[in-house]
Amino acid sequence: MIDKQPKIYTEKDLANLTKRAKLLEIVEDLEKRGAKVDMTKYPSNTLKYLRQAVLDAQKQLEPTPAPIVPPAPVKAPEPPKPIPPILKSSTPPPMPVITPKPVPAPAPKTAPVTPPAPVRAPTPAVAPAPVQAPKPVQAPPKPAVPKPKIDWRTLPESTPEQFVRKAYWKILEREPDAGGLQCYVSYIKGNMPREQVEGALKSSPEYAALQRRKQASK
């Protein structure tokens, strides 16, 4: 009994199929014939991905053609080598004269010459230590001249920059640094109350250290 030829599914045949159940039957048929179908590779069981699963499984069942091995080249037979003619002579060839090799004379043995011991150079005299010049006496540092304090009550406060400078002299008793001046001016321009700026300066570690120095000097 002759086995029935298995059906080959083409892309045109699969495009005409619109039912999901029919495509699943085709996948089961290919798995029975030895194909391995991993359905997890396909995101969903839509008709498009089921058709692709059938095509991928069918490629596994296609027979792999055996590689064609070219025949080995046939070597041509080598031509026979010509045989040199034998010369006939009535007289035998003369025997070669062997010249004896000259024996070299032994070289005379000479006693090894011992080199003289090296002469040590005299030890140089140690130069006296140089006399160090006395170090110049450094002048005592000049005492720092305290900067005059500014009466904060006389400073204007109409602009944000003027208010921040007045708050620094009022609370920390110094000129504001560039970073602090820029920071607090931006806060005031961002609708921050001026009382909060003074509160932030009073809660700083610098203000607490200033108060401790004032109490210790009393």
Rank of each mutant, 00 (worst) to 15 (best):
Y9T: 06
L14M: 09
N16Q: 14
R20M: 09
K22E: 08
V27I: 15
G34M: 13
M39Q: 07
K41N: 10
K41E: 12
S44A: 12
S44H: 11
T46R: 13
L47C: 02
L47S: 03
L61V: 05
T64M: 05
P67V: 01
P67K: 02
I68M: 01
V69C: 01
P71N: 04
V74M: 11
P77S: 12
P82Q: 01
I83R: 05
I86M: 04
I86G: 02
K88L: 08
S89A: 12
S90Y: 10
T91S: 13
M95Y: 08
P96A: 08
P96Y: 03
T99Q: 06
T99G: 02
P104R: 03
P106N: 01
A107M: 09
A107W: 05
P116C: 06
V119Y: 02
V119W: 02
R120N: 06
T123I: 15
V131M: 03
P136L: 10
P136E: 09
V137L: 14
V137T: 15
P143R: 05
P146V: 04
R153P: 01
R153Q: 14
P156F: 05
R165C: 08
W169H: 13
K170Q: 12
L172S: 03
E173Y: 08
Q182S: 13
S186A: 13
I188V: 10
P193I: 00
G199V: 02
A200L: 12
K202Y: 02
S203P: 00
S204M: 09
Q211P: 04
R213P: 00
K218M: 06
